[in-house]
Design a protein around this nucleic acid. Structure first.
Length: 467
RNA sequence: GGCGACGUAGCCAAGUGGUAAGGCAGAGGUCUGCAAAACCUUUAUGCGGCGGUUCAAAUCCGCCCGUCGCCUCCA
């Protein structure tokens, strides 16, 4: 089976065909850097990482852009409150964001454009839209997009614009635009903006939110590209508006596949600071959970289903990661007789992993194939009925799956090399144990623990692990 | 009010017509000087409820119940 994605645009699973046979152009909506990103944000970024990794594994060359929104109402307000410049303020949160990406082993995108660095590109698009009479200047001198000029407006979210206009939450009085459903491309300068403004042919002001993504995506990926992703909350209005702006500007189709990640909820409820169920990834690590555990937790659910975060669930993920790591280390020291059924089991595992991933990134299915193989081989390993060469083949399978799952198994295998000094202590301890000198053996175990190695005695001798 | 998603074991989660994957937790066991870890066995006559279609339904249809999301700048 070939790779299929659920496309929000058609609300169907579609076979994936990039515009250019081996290249994929991918735009992923990134953070607004007004605060630390939370575990819900990272669910989406992790989904995008899995997407990127699977495309790579499927032999596509991926060019990924992730924008950084470093100017908006919140960043301006908070930097003003703190009494520092917008740049100073966002600088820190950009760094924190990259640290968090790194800790979760999210592979870097090719480009991380910042909104403030693309003002001229936005101005160019807006100017063109004004010339085409698709945009207009409102009573407050801000520039708005006239959605009635875009026939398919609302299609992405399956929303009728006619109903929008009478929507309960929209009050006409508050706006200087002609229709409540129109949206801002350029916001004219307001006192509250402080020293955040750009003098442009459009007037003194700052960009609206949606326009940055149109400008930055098209700049790096061209007017028409393959995949655009984000959280479900971005479907409307953000992504709809991007389509309207971009297609009106270029006259051609903007994006072929729109993929959206469902939200993470906490204890069955929307995460919010007032409920006390709001966590950043840093909060999670402070509680003693590992980045890989959190990664596995995200992967254990399909990206289009709501994911209910609980500490019990996270603990389960941690346990699963341990089990996988342990299995891989066991494989490393395997040396027995060849296991005749291995080739069949392995090819089945490869096939099921691939089928799961190809089916709209069904990670729970893919992960199950890994566990099934472990369930089959653990008893085999117990009986030493697998050869060193075969164990290597199984390790290759795990490394293959790990290119997508990202549990750092390659590093684990490298680290599993035990320094000579440690080996010496282990054999010394074994000697003491044989002589029933348990005081000495326990002492050595303690010493090893201080050097961050843990000993596990098994019928076939001691095993050592790094902690 | 409009649009939409979801409801499978104690918890998490696959499965969209052929008789319930997988994980965690629990229970029992193996191993062990102790410890820790690991490994093995085991856990849903049933998939929110009630009807219907069918030889066959978690899967299709209808109604109901429940949870949640979006509906103008929240991933």
């Amino acid at each position: 089976m070939a790779l299929v994605f659920f496309n929000t645009l058609t609300r169907k699973k579609e076979a994936f065909h990039p515009l250019s046979p081996s290249e994929v152009k991918l735009y992923t909506c990134g953070p607004t850097v007004y605060d630390f990103a939370h575990i819900g944000n990272f669910r989406t970024y992790l989904f995008e990482d899995i997407l990127r990794r699977w495309l790579n594994t499927s032999n596509y060359n991926v060019t990924q852009v992730m924008n950084i929104t470093d100017v908006d109402d919140k960043t301006i307000r908070r930097s003003t409150e703190k009494g520092i410049s917008l740049n100073e303020y966002t600088h820190d949160y950009i760094n924190f964001f990259f640290e968090d990406l790194l800790s979760l082993k999210i592979e870097p995108a090719e480009f991380y454009p910042r909104a403030t660095e693309y003002i001229p590109d936005m101005v160019q698009i807006i100017t063109h839209l004004l010339e085409k009479k698709i945009a207009y200047k409102g009573e407050d001198s801000s520039i708005y997009y006239d959605v009635s000029k875009f026939p398919d407006y609302g299609k992405l979210a399956n929303i009728e614009v006619a109903e929008l206009k009478s929507g309960a939450r929209v009050s006409h009085d508050e706006y200087d635009k002609e229709e409540a459903s129109d949206f801002a491309l350029w916001k004219t300068y307001d006192r509250e903006d402080g020293d955040v403004f750009w003098e442009t042919p459009l007037g003194k002001g700052r960009p609206g939110w949606h326009i940055e993504c149109s400008a930055m995506s098209m700049k790096h990926l061209g007017p028409h590209f393959d995949i655009h992703t984000g959280g479900v909350d971005n479907i409307f209005p953000h992504h709809q508006n991007e389509i309207a702006q971009s297609e009106a500007y270029t006259g051609e189709k903007f994006v072929n596949y729109w993929l959206h990640a469902e939200h993470l909820i906490v204890d069955g409820k929307k995460m919010s600071k007032s409920l006390g169920n709001f966590y950043t990834v840093r909060d999670i690590f402070k509680k003693g959970f590992s980045p890989l555990g959190l990664r596995y937790f995200y992967v254990s659910s399909h990206y289009r289903n709501k994911l209910n975060f609980t500490f019990q669930g996270l603990q389960a993920a941690e346990s699963s990661v341990h089990r996988i790591k342990d299995f891989v280390l066991r494989l490393k020291s395997a040396h027995g007789n060849p296991y005749p059924d291995l080739p069949e089991a392995l090819s089945k595992a490869y096939q099921e992993f691939k089928e799961g991933m190809d089916d709209d990134l069904n990670t729970p299915r893919a992960v199950a194939s890994v566990h099934e193989l472990m369930n089959l081989l653990n008893p085999v390993l117990e009986e030493k009925e697998i050869s060193r060469e075969q164990a290597q083949e199984v390790i290759q399978f795990f490394l293959y799956t790990d290119k997508t799952l990202g549990l750092n198994l390659d590093e684990l295998l490298e680290e599993s090399l035990i320094p000579e000094e440690i080996e010496r202590l282990i054999s010394e301890r074994e000697k003491a144990r044989k002589n029933k000198d348990y005081r000495k053996s326990d002492e050595i175990r303690k010493t090893l623990q201080e050097k961050r190695f843990v000993i596990e005695d098994t019928p076939s001798g001691p095993r050592v692990k790094r902690i």
